[in-house]
Design a protein around this nucleic acid. Structure first.
Lengths: 260, 260
DNA sequence: CCAGGCGGTTCCAAAATTCGGAACCATGTC
DNA sequence: GACATGGTTCCGAATTTTGGAACCGCCTGG
C-alpha cells in the first residue's frame, strides 16, 4: 500500500458528517497503527492537504484543497451550460435545482440553484449521497451498461429508504423505466417529504456525464405541478442534448475515477 | 523523496494561471522522467485528486479536491465572523472586501464580498498573490516576528510592482508603520489603479490569522473617501479584536503549513 | 501529587515501494 | 511513411515505508 493510497484513505475519512477529525478518530477509521498515523498526518499537514486546529488539535482539510477545489470549478463547459438552463427552469417553477456527478455508486453535488419556494437547500455542493436513492443518481446509473452497474453496486445491496429500490432487481426495473422515459423520479427517499425529478446528460464530445434534477416538497406540490416539472425537464433535456451532442442510446463505458 | 511529496509537487503545478496541464507540462514543471510522471499522474487520477479530460487528455484538479475544498469552508468561526462585519462595511462604502490567509510569503483569497461600485471583482477565492504587494498581505506579515519574516521572504528579494517595497529594508519600514497604525495601505501595486486598505486579525483562542481588506479604484475615490474607509476599518478591527480576543502586541509564532 | 489518557514523536530492522532508463506502442499529423 | 505526442511496461537497484515499542509533555480526575 503506497504512501499516496494511505493519504487518500485519510482524506476520504472527511465528509460533511465529519468535517474534522481527531488523531484517535483517524486511527480508528483507518485502523492504522499510531506511528504510521502520526507520520502521515504530519506529512499531510506539512504539505497543506490538511490543517490542524491549534486549539482543539483536530485535523481538517487544508488550504491546498481549498485552492484546488476552486480550480476544479474551472472545468466548466458542460456544467455551466447546464447550470444556465437549470437556472431558468428553477426561476419559472420556483423549485431547487441540482447538478451532480457520479462517483462509483455515490453522487456528489456540484452546483445548486436555490428556488424561491420555502423548501430550503438541503444538499450543499460537495455533499455525497448514495446514487441509488436519488433521482439524478439513478438517471446517471441508467446510462451505464448493465455490467458497469453491477460492478458499481456493492456485493451486499445496501439498506436504503423505504421508497428506494430494495434490491438489485427492483433497481434494474427502475433503471429500465428511466431508459424508456428519459426522466427519473424520486419521492420520500433520502429525505422524507422531498421529491425530485432528474435526468442524465452526457457530453458527446468529452463523454463526461452529469445529473440534473429539480427538487420539491411532495406535500406542497400538486400532481399537475409535478407534471409541469416533468415537461420543463424534458424540454431542458432535449435542448441540452442538442447543444452538447448527447446521443442518448450510447452507453457510457468509462467514467473517471469512479471505481470506489 | 516520498510518493506524497511528488504528488504534492504535481498538485502545486496547478494555479489560476494554469488550471489544467498536459502530460508534457507536468514533466517540464516537475523535471521528472516520463515513467515516474506517468505512474504518478495515473495514481492521482485514480484516487480522484486529478481528473483527465477524455478529449484533450489534459489533467485538472479532481472531484476529491472539490469535495475537500468545500469542507475546508466549514472551518469557520473566525472567518465567518469577520465576513459578517466586512459585509456591513462593504454595504456602507460600496467597495469590495477580501478575506485572505498567509501561506509562506503569499496570500490566498478565502472570501470576497462584492461591492456595489463599478470596480469589478479581480481576485476570486483561491487566488494566490505575493503577500508583499498587497495591503492585507503586509498587514499579516507585520504581525510576525522579524525572524519569521526574514525566513519567509525569499533570499533574493522578488521583483515587485513600482509602489511596493523594493527591498527588505523598505519592506520593514512599511511593516513598522503598519505595526504603529494598525492599518495597512496599498495603491497601484498588484493591479494598476487599484488601492486597498487592510488589517490582520488573529484569534486569541486558536492563534490563526486572517487578513481583511477593502479594495477600491484609486481614480474613482477622493482622499476623504479613503479616510472614511480607514475609519470604517479601524472600527471593524476594534470590534473584531474584542470579539476574538486578539492581542495586538502578541507576535504570531507558528502559522500552519506556511513554510513554502 | 500521582496515575492515566491523549496526542504525539523517535528508533530500528524488515518489507515494500519507488525510481528511472529503455524499449515499446497507439494515434494523429505533416 | 516518418515523426511527435502521450503514454505504458519492465526490471534491478535504491529508497521509503512500516509497525512495534519505548518515551514524552500536557491535562485531568482522584
Amino acid at each position: 500500500m503506497s504512501a499516496l493510497t494511505n493519504a487518500i484513505e485519510i482524506l476520504h475519512c472527511f465528509s460533511s458528517a465529519r468535517p474534522d477529525l481527531s488523531f484517535a478518530d483517524v486511527m480508528a477509521l483507518t485502523g492504522k497503527p499510531k506511528s504510521s498515523t502520526s507520520r502521515l498526518l504530519r506529512a499531510l499537514r506539512d504539505c497543506g492537504l490538511l490543517e490542524q486546529d491549534p486549539h482543539t488539535r483536530r485535523y481538517r482539510p487544508g488550504l491546498l484543497t481549498f485552492e484546488l477545489g476552486r480550480l476544479h470549478r474551472a472545468h466548466d463547459d458542460l456544467i455551466s451550460m447546464a447550470e444556465r438552463e437549470l437556472r431558468e427552469v428553477c426561476a419559472r417553477t420556483g423549485h431547487t435545482g441540482y447538478i451532480a456527478v457520479l462517483d462509483g455508486c455515490e453522487q456528489v453535488v456540484l452546483r445548486i440553484v436555490p428556488g424561491s419556494n420555502p423548501l430550503r437547500v438541503v444538499n450543499p455542493p460537495g455533499q455525497r449521497t448514495p446514487a441509488l436513492a436519488t433521482s439524478n443518481g439513478r438517471a446517471m446509473l441508467a446510462r451505464l451498461s448493465d455490467a458497469d452497474i453491477r460492478a458499481r453496486v456493492p456485493a451486499t445491496y445496501p439498506k436504503l429508504p423505504r421508497n428506494s429500490p430494495q434490491n438489485f432487481k427492483q433497481l434494474m426495473t427502475r433503471l429500465d423505466e428511466i431508459r424508456r422515459t428519459g426522466i427519473s423520479e424520486a419521492a420520500d427517499e433520502s429525505i422524507e417529504g422531498v421529491g425530485s425529478q432528474g435526468f442524465a446528460l452526457k457530453s458527446g464530445e468529452t463523454g463526461e456525464m452529469i445529473g440534473i434534477a429539480v427538487s420539491y416538497s411532495v406535500q406542497a406540490t400538486t400532481a399537475a405541478e409535478r407534471a409541469n416539472v416533468r415537461r420543463e425537464l424534458a424540454a431542458m433535456a432535449a435542448k441540452l442534448r442538442r447543444l452538447t451532442g448527447d446521443q442518448l442510446d450510447q452507453v457510457v463505458t468509462r467514467v473517471q475515477a469512479g471505481t470506489r
